[in-house]
Structure formats: structure tokens, C-alpha cells
Design a protein around this nucleic acid. Structure first.
Lengths: 258, 258
DNA sequence: ACCGGTCCTTGACACACGTCAATGTCCAGA
DNA sequence: TCTGGACATTGACGTGTGTCAAGGACCGGT
């Protein structure tokens, strides 16, 4: 995934005239707010205050307790949000993929650490003008509300996972979520699906409330069960998606893959 | 807490004229939307579609998978939101107190069971007219966004609790949260604080991702440590709030009690 | 007062997962 | 090619919490 690939995708497909909406790769905020036919002034303003920011793997984007000054969208890469107890125990509380909203609109401070899990490109807006724009642009506010509701739904599914699932179910659930979120960009044929795990075992452990050793053992167990195949620590082939979902413990019709 | 107490609190303090805002006890939706000075038409409409609904302890308010037809506010009592795995393991994913929003605006179905944990009174609005109103009333939508953001913050703190805290820390954290949410209505003097636990041990276990036996044991342990005193299973006296928060594992300055 | 049910507490034991430690794999840099 | 470090896997063992079971406390109905 080279830098010049990013550059390509970030090119606007059209100029920001009032006649045509702006295309902003993987940034639904800019893309949707920018509707030339209903609110021309906002469109240009939002486009003008946006900027792209890049981060290396492991680099901190913003830390817990800091003042919230930017909001935006993930354009490329994966961002992890984590909370840490005084003695160092860490729990992931958010995992953001391209097109996800990042930042805390309408809140003064950040309550978690946001760290790049891979190379990351953000489409960022300064918080104050974005909020002013938000108040004047109902359909933008509505869009933000919908994204927040999505995150809340995901968080509630996550609570169930952390509180009541076994280690094996946790790992299987995580792979299901990954298959749903990243698999769309990769191969899939008749129940088989292959994709990259974009984060380390340590990050998986922080996501699932486990240790890296347990994560590793459960992945091995799933391989021995014939549910997945492994090609290097980061490359997964799901042999039978239905069986993986069975192992994850959710209802078969449960909406993991919408 | 008698029925006639509810009736008292539900009385409108003023008539719903355009000159004076409506008071709706513990329903910030109706109370805030109803601002006679900025949006008179919405105010009257919101007041006209609202209705009060009562539920007995254990009664289901709405079930997972059902169509979402009502939204509203908790006026009296405590509502639990739970998710259940196919084999019956249950996890609480929300615990609503008076003034909390309940229901799923902008979503077609409900993804969890909502059950009255105590006697409950809701201030309810039919979903469709409420949503239409929402789109025409930016400050109402903004209010809903803020409440959703609050819930998301609480959910993230909850993820940390479920994923990384010990049983003792979980129970202590829960008591801290209760002290913050219900203690305001009860006694408090110089570090000491007493309040009722409004839910059963089973509900606590579902909240904390534990079994009732472990919850019971940890409460006993906290009592033996001298952190709390017990007067019947539902009545708690926090001897030293600072020490309880210490036991909960959060940073001392961490914002459990805002 | 007595009974039955529900809720809570306490104890003995089991096991899933954490902890500690060793080994393997891969890759960048010398 | 060798080496050091980061990351992942595997094994042996310990422990926190679940499971199973018994008993206590309370409450409403008869």
C-alpha cells in the first residue's frame, strides 16, 4: 500500500463547483454534506476547511485527556481507540476503518487514546468551524447522529462479547467482524473468504479482553478445527463462513454481516 | 415510592400555552423541545403526541427483533437493556434511569430486550411523528445526538470494566456509578453516602459479566474490607467514597462523578 | 403460625484463562 | 551471513471465577 496509491484516491473526481458534488474518497462527511443541490454554501466551506493527515503505525493521533481540536474521517488504514487503567491494563474501546468518523464533536476533551494501528490517512476538519457548520446543516447533523447510533450498536454487541463469550467465541466473533468490514475489498467465493488481519495479536487481545497467548492458542484451535486456514500470522482464509459464525456464538441470522 | 407520588410529579406545572414552556418531570425531551420562545409549533405538537406508560418489575417493554414503534424518556424507575446468546447467556447492555432516553429513533428494529427492573413510568412518543418533528427541530436533534454521545461514552467505560477489571473492581465500579446516578436523590455527608441498589443480584451479575454468586461474594468482601456497610441486600452505605473509587480501579480524578 | 417461593449468601470443587518461560519465525541492519 | 529485536507460538503451571449444592432471610398467601 504505497503513498502514491493514497494520492490517487484522494484526487477529487470533479472540481468543487456548485454544479457537481465533491467526491472525497472514504470520507462520507465531506461527500454527503457536499450536496450542490440543497446547500451550496456549506459544501464549499466544508471542502475548504478539510485537510489530510498521515500517521505511521503506532503513532499517537490524540491522547486521553487532551483537548478535542480536530474531527474527521478515516480515509486509509485502521485506528484503535484504547483506555488504560492506572496499572497499565489496556482495553480497546473502538476500532475504526476507512469511512468511519473519528473525533469528538460537541465534547471538549478526548476520553481515550487514538493510535494508528497501521499506516493511516485522515480527512480532518478543525472542530470549531465543523461544529458551527453542523448547527447550520441539519442533514449533516443527522448523518453524524446515524454514525453515532451505529457505533453505539457496535459497542453493545461488543459488551456481549466481553461479558459472556468464551475465548474461542471471542476470536471467532472478531474474525467475523473483520470478514464483514474488510472482506468486501478482498476475495470471496461460495462461503470461502480470505483477508488480512490488519492488527497485531496484542491489539486483538486488547480488543477481546484476553492475553496474546490465549488469542494465539484460539487461532490455532480454530485452524485445527478446520474452520480457518492460516498463511502467515496476518493472512486468514475462512474455510466455512457459516461455521465460523456458528463458533462465534451469535444467532445465524444475527446481523453481523448486514 | 407510591403511585400517587408519580402522579404528583407528572402534573404540568403550567398549562401548555405559547407563553410558558411545558414542564415534563424527568423528560428532558419534552421539557427542552418545548421552548415557547423559539419554536412554538413544535412545542405544542410534541406535548400532544406524548403519553405516559407504566410497567411492573420484570415486565417486558419491548423485545429484541421487534419493530421500533415508540421512543421516549424514563420518568420513574429503572429499565434494563439486555442481549442474550442462543444458549441463554445474558449480558446487560444498557441501564436507564429517570431522564434517560429510551427507544431507537431512526432505526427500524430493536436490537435488545428492554425490561422494567423496577416499577417504571415512561413518557412515550410514537416514533414516526417524533422523527418528523426531529427533522424539523434542529435543537431537538442536537439534544438527541448529545444523549447518544453520552451513552457511547458510558458504553466505552463499560467495555473497559468488562474486558479488564477483576470481579471486585467490577462490583466497586458499579456501586460508584450507582452512587453518582442515584445518590443525588439521597443522603450524602463528608465522604459517606447511602443509597438503594435498585436492581437484583442477578441483574448486577448481568451488568458486570459475572455470576450472582461472585457478585454476592465480592459485596461481602467489600463489607469485610470496611469500604461499605450493608443494611439488607438492597441498602448500601458507602463508608469512604474515595476508597471505593480506589477499589474500582479508575483514576482518582477520572470522571465517574461529574 | 405455617408454608412455599424468591432472593441472597456461603462453601467445596472444577476448569478456563492468565502467568511465566522457552522456542520459533521473520526481517532490518551490520 | 550473522545478529538483534519484534512478534507469534507452544508448554507447564497457578488462580480467579464459574459450577454445583446447601442453607438462610424475607415475604405474601392461606
Amino acid at each position: 500500500m504505497s503513498r502514491h496509491m493514497f494520492a490517487d484516491r484522494l484526487e477529487r473526481s470533479t472540481a468543487p463547483t456548485l454544479e457537481a458534488p465533491i467526491k472525497c474518497a472514504n470520507c462520507p462527511i465531506a461527500e454527503r454534506a457536499v450536496c450542490a443541490y440543497c446547500e451550496p454554501p456549506e459544501l464549499v466551506e466544508l471542502d475548504q476547511i478539510k485537510s489530510y493527515k498521515s500517521f505511521e503505525p503506532g503513532q499517537e493521533i490524540v491522547g486521553a485527556g487532551e483537548e478535542s481540536v480536530m474531527v474527521g474521517s478515516v480515509v486509509e488504514g485502521v485506528v484503535k481507540l484504547t483506555k488504560t487503567l492506572v496499572d497499565g491494563r489496556r482495553q480497546m474501546v473502538g476500532l475504526l476503518f476507512p469511512s468511519d468518523f473519528i473525533g469528538r464533536a460537541m465534547r471538549p476533551t478526548v476520553e481515550y487514546d487514538a493510535v494508528a494501528a497501521t499506516k493511516v490517512v485522515l480527512c480532518a476538519f478543525p472542530k470549531s468551524p465543523f461544529e458551527r457548520l453542523l448547527k447550520r446543516t441539519p442533514h449533516l447533523e443527522q448523518r453524524l447522529l446515524e454514525m453515532t447510533l451505529d457505533e453505539l450498536d457496535a459497542a453493545r454487541e461488543w459488551l456481549l462479547l466481553l461479558g459472556r463469550k468464551t475465548a474461542k467465541e471471542k476470536v471467532a466473533s472478531f474474525l467475523c467482524i473483520l470478514a464483514a468490514r474488510t472482506g468486501e475489498f478482498e476475495g470471496a467465493d461460495a462461503g470461502r473468504k480470505h483477508f488480512q488481519i490488519p492488527i497485531s495479536r496484542e491489539d486483538m487481545a486488547d480488543y477481546l479482553g484476553l492475553t496474546i497467548e490465549t488469542v494465539s492458542r484460539q487461532i490455532t484451535a480454530l485452524r485445527k478445527d478446520g474452520v480457518i486456514e492460516i498463511d502467515g500470522p496476518r493472512r486468514i482464509v475462512v474455510s466455512d463462513l457459516a461455521e465460523l459464525m456458528e463458533t462465534a456464538g451469535d444467532d445465524a441470522e444475527g446481523g453481523i454481516i448486514p
